[in-house]
Simulated assay, not measured.
Amino acid sequence: MTIDVKEADDSTLERWNSFVDESKETTPFHRREALTHLAETANAEVRFLVGYKGQEPVGIFPIFETTKGPFRMVYSPPPHLEVYYLGPALLNFSKLKQRKAERRHRSFIDGCLSWIDDEIDPHYVDVRTVDGYTDLRPFSWNGFDVSPSYTYILDLTEDDLLMQFSRDARSNVRNRDDDCTIREAGVEGIEAVIGQIQNRHAAQDKEYRIDPAFVTELYERLPEGCVRPYVCERDGEILGGMVTLEGDDTIYRWQGGAKHDLDVPINDLLDWHIIRDARERGLTRYDLVGANLPRLCRYKSKFGPEPVAYHTVQRKATRMQAVTGVYRRLPSALRVVSE
């Protein structure tokens, strides 16, 4: 089976978002306007790959090309921008029998990787897929290392979601402080939420590479309702907040929920409000975005979600493996100097 993989021309780019809407394996970051914004921020070149069976599109694969020193690298998504999943997404597979679907899928990924090798010849490739993209064998068969990471998914179709919560979470949302108001707050909310996270990271001497301007630009570029900044306020003061992303059937708990020392269970109230809002809009999944750190799992697991795997696939050229090995063997002081 031959799948023809091409880089999207201007005409195809006009149709790109319709491909995103048709696939069940895409996120808001797969949209053209988001990809362009990521490329500009990461100082990378975004390449829009599309696979065809005849005239029928069978998959899309947005990738980012960049260089560091002598090395050419391909990412999907680009690093350090708080984008957790991207990678390939399949189209027009639902009616195919298993054997034909597997052949088409493998041919699509083979074609994409051949295009990447022919056009870019990278020393390093790093791809993180969405949780719905579950068959990673075509990458393994092409010599990639495949490793799982985890997120939490809460099924919003359950009749009584509150009963899945832990006792303390149920108590917090049932006995909420009536003086607190939760609302969508637009750019004001983005500035408050991202500012809190920046301050939290700075206090812990940790790196956090996005800022309110980055999120605001995403808010303005994406369709209305795709980025939703929620805040919890009391007496006109914003106590905390959450910036969510929304696409297809899923709402993503993207940024926010900074730890605080107040006497109000701000994050519990925010999560419960977001869950109810999403259900009213007909969404069926709440992705709590990340279930890899024990200290964060302790909080997120109290809503009764299921841990679900997504995957990272990586490949390093021999030259880069050798350089990385030498770098890791350097004393830590020398590594700091070299950076």
Rank of each mutant, 00 (worst) to 15 (best):
T41P: 00
G132Q: 08
F19K: 01
S149C: 09
Q164R: 14
M163L: 09
F108I: 02
L288M: 15
Y124N: 06
S149P: 00
L136V: 09
G87V: 02
F93Y: 08
R319H: 06
A89H: 00
Q98F: 08
Y133N: 11
H37Y: 04
A34S: 13
P148L: 07
D131W: 09
T250Q: 03
R174D: 10
L13K: 12
A202Y: 01
I109D: 01
G225M: 06
V289R: 13
D135H: 10
H37S: 15
S140C: 02
I210C: 09
I109W: 02
D235R: 05
R328K: 15
Q255V: 13
I251T: 12
N43T: 06
S107L: 01
V130A: 14
Y52P: 01
P138T: 00
Q196L: 13
V125W: 01
A169F: 09
E45I: 10
F165H: 05
M73L: 15
E82F: 08
T312A: 14
G189T: 02
R319P: 00
A42F: 07
R72S: 15
L156C: 07
S107Q: 02
S332V: 14
G195K: 08
S140E: 10
M73D: 05
A34M: 04
F139N: 08
A8V: 02
V264N: 01
D160N: 14
V215N: 03
R72G: 11
L35I: 15
S18M: 06
E233M: 02
A89P: 00
V125A: 10
E306C: 06
V50Y: 00
V215A: 05
D179K: 07
